[in-house]
Amino acid sequence: MTEIAKLKKQLKELFASQKLAVLATHNEKQSYASLVAFASTADLKQLLFATTRATRKYANLAANPNVALLIDNRSNRETDFHKAVAATATGKTTEVGTRERTRLLKLYLGKHPHLREFVSSPNCALLKVKVDSYFVVNRFQNVMELRPR
């Protein structure tokens, strides 16, 4: 298996094992971090999350669509230092358009079925991050960058 294939497999396993990601947004003055329920497309090129339009993060995204998402498998134990894997995805966020909404919503609710009501509410937006890069950290300090082309 190539290094790229290994890393992609590791990411898929990580994404399957985790429901939440930390989303970092930014407005002119301040960075802001939020927990979001995320899902990824099978090709790892897009990450999805949902938020209502009244939130601070939505306002930040409207002003600056560039985000970072952190997904990790820490267990809040000391062993995390040698065992945990963390992936930071960077990319640009847009609201999912009508044409692809059905397909991506199905994917998203497939992972988070309990959010059906939340996502269907009129003020909730389904957003997608087109990933520029994944920065994958393991072994405490080993960092690899994986870029979809």
Partner: peptide, 12 residues
């Protein structure tokens, strides 16, 4: 050619 590109950023 592959669909992804790998770059090491920090190695141990």
């Amino acid at each position: 050619k592959r669909g992804f590109q790998l770059t090491a950023r920090q190695i141990l």
